[in-house]
């Protein structure tokens, strides 16, 4: 089959459209990775961090989140699908009964929430979890 100029244009338009539709889902993945690396100094292994979040959040303006990691000195929370991935970082001390904390966060859309824990010995751990959001936070 011979490719005409018209076919080529149609193909290019199709590819562009497909690309545009897929883009918003994880537009900030590079930003997320950069934030993780800046905090952990590399990509941490998955596991060893407890990340409690609802499976479905009706209101993205206030989503309850709980994180815990035995022996962690600090835990950072990221939201992969927000305009900026940073959410907050907890710092634990010798006075902490355990390295566990809760807060409420904003999620703009259905997305992954990431928790990165830094341990006393310098190692790092990570957990990732999807939260479905019915009505997005931010904006308005």
């Amino acid at each position: 089959m011979q490719m005409t100029r018209r076919d080529l244009f149609a193909l290019a338009a199709g590819l562009a459209a497909a690309g545009l539709i897929r883009m918003p889902a994880h537009a900030d993945e590079a930003k997320v990775e950069a934030a993780i690396k800046e905090f952990a100094g590399g990509m941490p292994e998955t596991g060893g961090v407890e990340l409690g979040a609802p499976e479905i959040a009706e209101n993205g303006n206030t989503v309850p989140i709980e994180v815990a990691a035995a022996g962690a000195t600090s835990i950072m929370i990221l939201a992969a699908g927000n305009p900026n991935p940073g959410v907050g970082t907890f710092h634990f001390t010798a006075m902490s009964a355990e390295s566990r904390a809760s807060t409420r966060i904003r999620l703009a859309q259905t997305q992954d929430v990431v928790a990165v824990a830094k341990m006393a010995d310098g190692s790092t751990k990570m957990a990732r979890r999807e939260v479905k959001v019915t009505i997005g936070g931010c904006g308005g």
Partner: peptide
């Protein structure tokens, strides 16, 4: 802080909900 010593701290970004709620635990 407890008796002048830091017991717990947190850095907050704009993605923390209005009327920030923070829960943590300590042993004294």
């Amino acid at each position: 802080t407890y008796n002048g010593e830091t017991a717990f701290s947190m850095d907050l970004e704009p993605a923390i909900s209005a009327n920030p709620y923070i829960e943590f635990s300590v042993k004294l």
